[in-house]
Computed example of a mutant assay.
Amino acid sequence: MRAALLHSAREEAGQLIADARRDAVAVIAGARAQSEALLREARLQGEAQGARDAEAALAQARREARSELLRAKAQACDDLHRRVVDHVRNLRWEETYPAVRDRLTQRARRILGSGATVADHPHGGVVGTAPGRATDLSLDAMAARALDRAGAEIESLWKT
Score class of each variant (00 low, 15 high):
residue 106 Q to E: 03
residue 126 V to F: 00
residue 69 L to R: 12
residue 23 D to F: 05
residue 94 E to Y: 02
residue 105 T to F: 01
residue 146 A to V: 10
residue 29 A to S: 11
residue 66 R to I: 05
residue 64 E to C: 05
residue 81 H to W: 09
residue 140 D to C: 05
residue 65 A to C: 03
residue 143 A to K: 01
residue 11 E to N: 13
residue 152 A to S: 13
residue 146 A to H: 03
residue 60 Q to A: 15
residue 20 A to V: 04
residue 89 R to I: 02
residue 30 G to C: 04
residue 138 S to Y: 00
residue 90 N to A: 14
residue 9 A to F: 05
residue 84 V to N: 10
residue 94 E to P: 00
residue 95 E to M: 01
residue 97 Y to I: 00
residue 132 G to W: 00
residue 101 R to C: 00
residue 69 L to P: 01
residue 55 E to I: 10
residue 67 S to N: 13
residue 1 M to E: 14
residue 145 R to T: 14
residue 65 A to F: 08
residue 78 D to I: 01
residue 20 A to Y: 07
residue 75 Q to V: 12
residue 147 L to R: 03
residue 16 L to Q: 11
residue 80 L to I: 04
residue 128 G to V: 04
residue 156 S to Y: 03
residue 158 W to S: 15
residue 146 A to E: 09
residue 117 T to N: 03
residue 11 E to L: 13
residue 110 R to D: 04
residue 157 L to K: 01
residue 103 R to A: 15
residue 122 P to I: 03
residue 76 A to L: 06
residue 95 E to R: 08
residue 57 A to V: 07
residue 17 I to Y: 10
residue 52 R to M: 06
residue 9 A to R: 09
residue 6 L to T: 11
residue 53 D to K: 03
residue 30 G to P: 01
residue 100 V to G: 02
residue 64 E to A: 10
residue 15 Q to H: 14
residue 15 Q to G: 10
residue 75 Q to F: 10
residue 12 E to V: 13
residue 136 D to F: 02
residue 126 V to L: 03
residue 112 L to M: 01
residue 39 L to I: 11
residue 86 D to C: 09
residue 54 A to T: 06
